[in-house]
Amino acid sequence: MKLSILVNEGPYTHQASDTAYQFTKAALEKGVEIFRVFFYNDGVNNGTRLTVPPQDDRNIQKNWSELGEKYKLDLVVCIAAAQRRGILDEGEAKRHGKGEGAANIAPGFRISGLGQLIEAGIEAERLVVFGD
């Protein structure tokens, strides 16, 4: 089985990103292939390295980054949604003149276009959507 995952809500505000993470982790542990995890709408906020949750709570962004590293996951943040919400990589920060050190994309995530979401739907046997 080959799945793609779509995450449409931000961390902490909504359970969708927690559920998506737990689902993705469980699927990977069962040997399911994850073609891509795509972050859209407020879901892009899962991919900022600047979140600092309280120490006695889960760190959702770090969970994703670690899962991504362990399984070589393709964690893709939508560029249009990310720009609206202030999520930038080095290239975008430079292109929009946001200054040195403005890039805040978290480790293991990359920023790309919506075409990557459509491709995720085409290439996987199922696209599983987590949202409101």
Partner: peptide, 18 residues
């Protein structure tokens, strides 16, 4: 923003001949 961002996916997706 859901409606607007849904429409943005539709427009991009239209290029994929699905």
């Amino acid at each position: 923003i859901y409606a607007l961002e849904s429409l943005e996916v539709v427009l991009i997706g239209a290029a994929f001949d699905q």
